[in-house]
């Protein structure tokens, strides 16, 4: 028995559902594959290190938010990989996602994606916002409203969570108000049966997943 064990570590339940639904939408499945919600950024990074060390996984991917300092997040991951024995890890993240293998074939193949797109600061919610079709009026209204609230000092959320405020506001105004992020990936308009989110802009991410996890 030697099937290839694949693990994708994510920061939270929203990430898990969004990625599951993106794969579902493109009819992609992987064998012996698990999306692990580590429940937090530090736990995700620690789980990444332990999973590599455990020797029980052949392919390990991690999806974490770039947050406010992309390079710092990248360096943290880079240092962890160096500690586990990986070599030739680039100083900067690749915008199409990173995949690192061990030429000695002793360490698992690892992949890193920094939400939203390996180059901007931000988080999962920015990634989702990029999937809203061009010219969507409700998105501009939501953006303006959120900015107004911030200007008036009425926001209870911190500025760093602005993307969350915007996307959840937009979702609150859809046919099914309060649809979760994950469900929104596969939600279709009732009349036209068009998807409300355009997954075209998710192609880089999907391609990274495919390169990492496809047999």
């Amino acid at each position: 028995m030697a099937h290839i064990q694949k693990l994708l570590i994510v920061e939270g339940i929203d990430d898990k559902y969004v990625i599951s639904r993106l794969l579902q939408r493109r009819k992609i499945t992987y064998q012996h594959f698990e999306i692990h919600d580590a429940n937090g950024v530090k736990p995700s990074l620690n789980t990444f290190s332990i999973a590599i060390k455990s020797g029980n996984y052949d392919v390990i991917g991690i999806v974490v938010d770039a947050d406010t300092d992309l390079l710092e997040r990248w360096q943290d991951l880079r240092n962890r990989l160096i500690k586990e024995g990986y070599q030739h890890i680039p100083q900067n993240p690749n915008i199409k996602g990173n995949i690192i293998t061990d030429p000695e074939e002793e360490l698992p193949t690892v992949g890193i994606w920094l939400m939203p797109n390996n180059q901007n600061t931000g988080m999962l919610e920015d990634f989702i916002r990029f999937l809203v079709p061009e010219g969507d009026e409700l998105l501009s209204i939501a953006k303006n409203k959120v900015n107004d609230i911030i200007k008036a000092g009425q926001n209870r959320f911190t500025q760093s969570h602005k993307s969350k405020a915007i996307i959840h506001t937009w979702l609150a105004w859809q046919e099914r108000p309060g649809t979760q992020l994950g469900k929104a990936i596969t939600y279709r308009f009732i009349k036209s049966q068009q998807y409300i989110l355009d997954d075209g802009k998710a192609s880089d991410f999907i391609n990274w997943l495919q390169t990492l996890f496809k047999e």
Binding site: A38, P43, N46, T47, I50, S54, N56
Partner: peptide, 10 residues
Amino acid sequence: IAVEQNIEVR
């Protein structure tokens, strides 16, 4: 961490 995250290390 392994125990908390239910990651198999054995």
